[in-house]
Amino acid sequence: MRSYHGSDFYDNDTNFKKYMERRQGQENANDTLEKPVIWQLLEDISDRHVLDLGCGDAGFGVELLNKGCAAYVGIEGSRNMVEAASSNLADYNNGTVVHTRIEEFAYPRDSYDLVLSRLAIHYLQDIERVFQCIHQCLKRNGRFVFSVEHPVITSTLQPSGTRTNWVVDNYFSEGYREQQWLGGTVQKYHRTVEDYFRAMQDAGFIVEQLRESRPVREHFLNEETYERRCRIPLFLFLAGRKSV
């Protein structure tokens, strides 16, 4: 079975179709757990210039533009996702998508008020360099907000499916992991909570918030799904600010 690096996974048409169907599913984890926290961390985005790393189909970019951000640039490595993003942004003169990997983007200095990344950074091997690039491309007092799969999940990745129990193992063995997901093998990188926090500080950010995906009952229709989500955190969030 082929192993995919990050965005390459979605250039397999079967994987792309399965993923888009999954995202439309009722009570999917992205919409019930991850997105609500992201919105809380973003604060006021009015008139902000936003860079979105790993933007996918830019559906969230459309939401940001509709809420008043001045300009939106999405970075995406998957050809299929870029086509979907271009379609979603077609009616917005101030919304664009760039087809490149997060690691290869030429980060323009002092250009953005907000850099955002939702569930993409755990695909990157060298986050230290990427975080430094993000820091330099932000304006003074610009903010960096991101989410990743929680380290208790990435420590021991398991085959896809509904879990009934979770095992945390090899937690302090940082590095490469593989996960069977949607019929394919995905490459990811495990880091501890401390690793992410330290990488933010080393890049020059003042870390303002650290959050986990504590479920909120009102976001769920099904009591069983809510109770299952209360058992373990699926996502980790960090928000930092550039002070100089």
Rank of each mutant, 00 (worst) to 15 (best):
S78V: 01
S78C: 04
D11G: 05
R231V: 07
A199S: 14
I102L: 09
Q125H: 01
E218A: 15
A90L: 03
Y176P: 05
P215A: 13
S46G: 14
Y176E: 11
G184P: 04
K17D: 14
I102H: 02
L221C: 12
G54K: 01
V115R: 08
E149M: 08
G59D: 01
V244D: 06
T225F: 06
G59Y: 00
L51D: 08
S173Q: 12
R177V: 00
G142F: 08
T185I: 09
G54R: 01
I75R: 06
F60V: 07
F172S: 02
P108Y: 07
E224W: 14
F131H: 14
Q24W: 03
D44H: 12
E21Y: 11
F131N: 14
D202F: 06
H135R: 10
R214T: 13
R177L: 02
N15Q: 04
N15A: 06
N80F: 04
E212H: 10
G175Q: 04
T164Y: 06
K18A: 15
V37K: 02
E34V: 11
S7K: 10
G161H: 00
L89R: 01
E76M: 11
H150W: 08
E27H: 13
Y112K: 09
Y189H: 03
Y4E: 00
K188D: 01
I102A: 05
S7N: 10
Y72K: 00
T185G: 02
L119V: 05
S243Q: 10
V97F: 04
S3G: 00
A70F: 08
I127D: 07
H219S: 12
F105R: 04
E212T: 14
G184D: 07
H5V: 09
W166E: 04
S111G: 10
V115Q: 09
E149H: 08
A84F: 05
V98W: 05
Q26M: 10
M200C: 12
R23G: 12
E149I: 02
A70R: 15
V167N: 05
H190A: 13
S117K: 06
T192Y: 06
E224D: 15
A106F: 07
E178G: 01
V82H: 05
S160A: 08
C137W: 09
L210G: 08
H135G: 06
N88A: 10
K35T: 15
L114M: 15
H190W: 02
W166L: 02
D113R: 09
V37A: 02
K139P: 05
T185A: 02
S173A: 13
D113E: 12
Y19N: 13
Q158P: 02
R129Y: 00
F237H: 06
R129E: 03
S46I: 08
S173I: 11
R228G: 08
I45V: 15
T100E: 14
V207Y: 07
Q136A: 11
L210F: 14
N30R: 14
G25T: 00
H5M: 11
R217I: 12
N94Y: 10
L221D: 15
E76C: 13
P159G: 01
E208F: 11
S46F: 09
C69Q: 06
P36L: 11
T154A: 09
D13K: 14
P151E: 07
D169K: 11
K67A: 15
D8M: 03
T96R: 12
V186G: 00
